[in-house]
């Protein structure tokens, strides 16, 4: 099956066409360089995204910014956001504090990206 995607490797933004059989990318065309081929393979076989989000802080109107320590599978992004929607942290919080351990069983922790309180 042919899949169309835009390479994010550089501002060229090559329009890539990849032959993808559901598990493997067999051919990439349209790429100006090797970055495009690699991007198409990763993006089609195992797309991942960093998630940055906000969680509630007990006793404050302002939220706390957090991130996944590493990219997680793209299909889990909204589940991850939903899981974080159920979290409320109590200050003080320091950068790097684990806010949600092993989110959705990915092995990836969600950590604070700012200090709040204290």
């Amino acid at each position: 099956m042919k899949r169309e995607l835009t390479c994010i490797g550089c501002p060229m933004g090559c329009r890539l066409t990849a032959e993808f059989n559901g598990t493997e990318v067999t051919e990439v065309t349209g790429n100006g360089c090797a970055v495009g081929a690699r991007y198409a393979r990763e993006e089609l076989t195992n797309p991942k995204r960093m998630v940055t989000a906000l969680v509630r802080v007990v006793g404050m109107e302002r939220p706390l910014s957090v991130k996944t320590e590493a990219p997680i599978e793209k299909r889990l992004v909204f589940d991850c956001l939903a899981a974080l929607g159920a979290v409320a942290v109590a200050p003080p919080v320091r950068i790097g504090d684990v806010i949600l351990e092993n989110v959705l069983g990915t092995g990836v922790n969600v950590v604070a990206t700012e200090d709040i309180g204290g």
């Binding site: 960093m50 940055t52 906000l54 910014s65 991130k67 950068i95 990206t113 700012e114 200090d115």
Partner: peptide
């Protein structure tokens, strides 16, 4: 940077990808 909570900052300065508040910190 305080409100730029997304990642993508610092690849040149710190050789790692940080969020805005982390870069500022």
């Amino acid at each position: 940077l305080r409100q730029c909570i997304h990642n993508g900052f610092g690849l040149h300065t710190f050789q790692e990808e940080l969020t805005g508040p982390e870069y500022a910190a």
